[in-house]
Design a protein around this nucleic acid. Sequence first.
RNA 1: GGCGCAUUAGUCUAGCUGGUUUAGGACGCCGCCCUCUCAAGGCGGAGAUCACGGGUUCGAAUCCCGUAUGCGCUACCA
Length: 476
Amino acid sequence: MTTKVRFAPSPTGYLHVGGARTALFNWLFAKHTGGKFILRIEDTDKERSTEEAIEAILASMSWLGLDWDEGPFYQTERLDIYQKEAQKLVESGSAYECYCTPEELEKRRQEALSSRGAPRYNRRCHDLSSKEASAYQARGLKPSIRFYSEDKGETIVEDLVRGRVVFDNAELDDLIIMRPDGLPTYNFAAVIDDLDMGMTHVIRGEDHLPNTPRQIQIYKAMEAKPPAFAHLSMILGEDKAPLSKRHGAASVEVFRDQGYLSDALINFLALLGWAFDDKTTLFSREELKTHFGLDKVTKSPAVFDTAKLDWMNGQYIRDLSDAELTEKLLPFWQDAQLLPAEEITGEMREELIFLASICRERLIKLSDIIGLTDFFFKDVDFDERAVNKVLKKEGAKESLEAVAAKLNSIDNWSHQVIDEELRALAEEIGIKPGKLFQPIRVAISGRMVSPPLFESLEALGKETSLARIDAAKTLT
RNA sequence: GGCGCAUUAGUCUAGCUGGUUUAGGACGCCGCCCUCUCAAGGCGGAGAUCACGGGUUCGAAUCCCGUAUGCGCUACCA
């Protein structure tokens, strides 16, 4: 039997990292088992679903490289299917029309709650006579459809990650499956679609575990075999509360914009609730596909540790070739207005590749390139502390003058030559190399920290380097 | 309130068919080395009475029960 799984987000916002992890596990499961991965948009909540959210989710999925084999399917385009199936359940006695209004239901719920009772639906409309029904209809009321749920015995969920979970049927009440406006409700639409689309496994968030017995009852009522279930634990913020916007970055597009590589995010997410062995932490997508298995999925919730993601992202950045890194850096330079938006080729591109090569070990996120290289593109913006600590120091002016003279004499402007000459100069003057180099760094970059000095001088060019050193003398 | 799930170092986790574990790896942290700054890299270190309390057993992180804590569901949200 070939497997088939799906990711079924509701388009009420961007793609959350928790959702991304669910999508990833489904995708990996499909790839690992040679099955199909489908995308379904659960947009039955008209109030909260938006077109922008759909776009955002699709864009994030693509960026993550989680390609789907079928879909995206939209539940709002399948309304007739749900209506037909609901009607069948009504005819078979597994569902019934309910005319209770949301207000009435809410009132009864509050009453039940305040008198320590369980807020369950009382089946008031179950045995409505056709006379009573037409009376409601005459008042212009449209019925919702409720599922008549079994209230004796128990429903067992054989969860692939949690094991056997038993629910007492008496705990489940008659849930609404169709709203009066003809839109299905989550638990019903999911069952119909998973059945209709031939899902063999349903891998989703832990928050759906309590829904599962209800859904199993619906499958039973339809005389259909439920798929296998696997419920993934939640992803938490540093404070152990479920991850949300409040924690800063919770959407994958934010990670993308900050300069995380999708390979790194994928690797990181894969390890949130899954481990292959007791040693390996870095996995390529291919390795993930060959090793992934539901049997290795963890049960307990996981805190999203940005520090570890940062480390991992650095690993992936260092794995890129200079040209690849440059390609990924381009949009960041452009967004920062350091580079024109048009395509960059030729000598300019070569220079950028050189910059990328000298910065790569200093990058945690791609966006870090801005603070590291802006002085190559525009005038120096002096950091006051650097000026005071370095340029205003005794002897800085003399050092800079000596350096300027030495640099001026260099014809072959390369970092190797600059390196040799400046070290020789330090020896001549009799000061430590570091002491000589630091004022140069501040002069050309305005800061105490920069990419490697000699490479930076080379990239800047002889003329600009000398001009900046000369200008810095006025600050000593 | 009811029901369900979870609980190994700051974090992600391995181990969980009981003994080979003085609980392994990774991030982070600390130190040393390297070094033109910052990183990266190399080496080393600290950090876990395996939530707590009982029980079963010759022996428990591993099995059972209870408690606590956290989270989820209890919607005409998914």
